[in-house]
Design a protein around this nucleic acid. Structure first.
Lengths: 186, 186
DNA sequence: ACCTGAACACCGTTCAAGT
DNA sequence: ACCTGAACACCGTTCAAGT
C-alpha cells in the first residue's frame, strides 16, 4: 500500500538553504541535509535526482524570494524595486547567490523574473527587437555587482561604499535604457 | 642531505589548470592533480597548503595570462585591450574563470591589473577621488558579463549575439568613464 | 629534505532489503 | 510506496616511516 511521504522536495530545499546560510555552501552535503530533515541521506533521492539537482533547486528557491514590484508603478520604480529585491536576496543568501551566474537563465523562476523585466523595458519605450539585448546587459551588470559583493571580491569595502557604487550602477543602467528608448538611428 | 625537489608549485598549478580546462572544475582533485604531476597526492602538500590554496593559485595563474596593453596607447585602447585580453582568458579557461568573483581583489596579480586600469582612468581625466569607484563599477560589469558567458548563464546564445552584447557593454562603460572625466558638479 | 604507505573521517550514490 | 542498512568508489588530509 502507498504510504504518505514524510517530507517533500520543498522541505529538502529549505534545509539545504538554511545550511548554506549558516555554514556556507560546502556544508550543504547530502548527509547534512538529510540530518536536518530527519531521514537518512538515501531518502533524499526520492525528492532530488542528485546533488546537482539539489543545488539547482536552491537557485530556484532564491529566485522565488525576489519580490515582484506592483504592476501599476512607473517602469523606473519597477526596475528599481526588482534590483533592490535582488540585492536583498543576495544579502540574505550570500553563499548560494553566486550560483545564479552558473545556470542558464531558462528555468521557470528565471523566466518569470525576465518577463517582468521585459514588460518594464517595453513600457520604457525600448523597441521590441532591442529588449532582449538590453535586458541581458542590465541583468548581467547587476548580477555581476551583487555576486562580487556576496562572493567576497568586494567584501573588504565598507557597506556605505558598496551602497553608493550600487546606486551609481543603477543610474548608469537607467541612462542606458533611456538611450535605447524612443528615436534610434536607422 | 637535501634532495632537489622534482616539481615546483607552478607545475602543480599548471596540472590543475589543464585538468579544469579539459574536464571541468570538479575534475581538479588532489589525486588527479598528483597523477598528472606523477607523484602521490600527499606530495602536493609541500607546494600547496590545501585544496583551497590550489584553487586560489589557479585564479592567480589566470590573471598572469591577461595580456597587458602597450604603455604608449591612448587610454581607450588600453582599456579595450585589457577587456579583450580578459575575455580571451575567460574563453580559454571557462571552468576556472568564475572563481575570479569569489576572491577578494587584493592578490598580487589582481593589484597589478587594477593598477594598470587606474593609470588608464587617470589618463582619461577621471578625478583621483573617483578612480577607485569607477574602476570597481567597470570591472564588476565586465566580469559579470564574462562569468555569465563562461559559466553558462548565457551559454545558449550564439557567439555573434554575445560578441555584440559585449561591444555594447564596452561602449556603455566608455561613455560612463567619459561622463566621469573633466568637469563634474560641485 | 623530499616523497611514500597506510590510515582516517568524510563524500555522493547504488542496491537489495525491510515495513 | 517509502525509507533504511550495508556497501562502493571516491575525497581531502594526517602522520609516521622510508631514503
Amino acid at each position: 500500500m502507498g504510504r504518505l511521504p514524510r517530507f517533500d522536495r520543498r522541505t529538502v530545499l529549505r534545509a539545504g538553504l538554511d545550511l548554506a546560510d549558516e555554514h556556507g555552501l560546502d556544508a550543504v552535503t547530502m548527509q547534512a541535509v538529510a540530518g536536518r530533515v530527519g531521514v537518512t541521506p538515501m531518502a533524499l533521492y526520492r525528492q532530488v535526482a542528485s546533488k546537482a539537482d539539489l543545488l539547482d533547486g536552491l537557485v530556484e528557491l532564491l529566485l522565488t524570494e525576489v519580490a515582484m514590484p506592483a504592476a501599476g508603478l512607473p517602469w523606473q520604480d519597477r526596475l528599481g524595486a526588482m534590483a533592490a529585491g535582488l540585492r536583498q536576496v543576495a544579502h540574505r543568501h550570500p553563499a548560494v547567490f553566486p550560483l545564479l551566474l552558473r545556470r542558464p537563465a531558462t528555468t521557470r523562476e528565471s523566466l518569470r523574473a525576465r518577463a517582468a523585466a521585459y514588460r518594464a523595458l517595453a513600457q520604457a519605450g525600448v523597441p521590441p527587437d532591442r529588449i532582449a539585448s538590453v535586458e541581458r546587459l542590465v541583468s548581467t551588470a547587476i548580477l555581476g555587482f551583487l555576486v562580487s559583493e556576496a562572493g567576497g571580491r568586494l567584501a573588504h569595502h565598507p557597506r556605505g561604499v558598496l551602497d553608493e557604487d550600487f546606486g551609481r550602477l543603477q543610474d548608469l543602467l537607467a541612462g542606458f535604457i533611456a538611450s535605447e528608448s524612443g528615436a534610434r538611428p536607422g
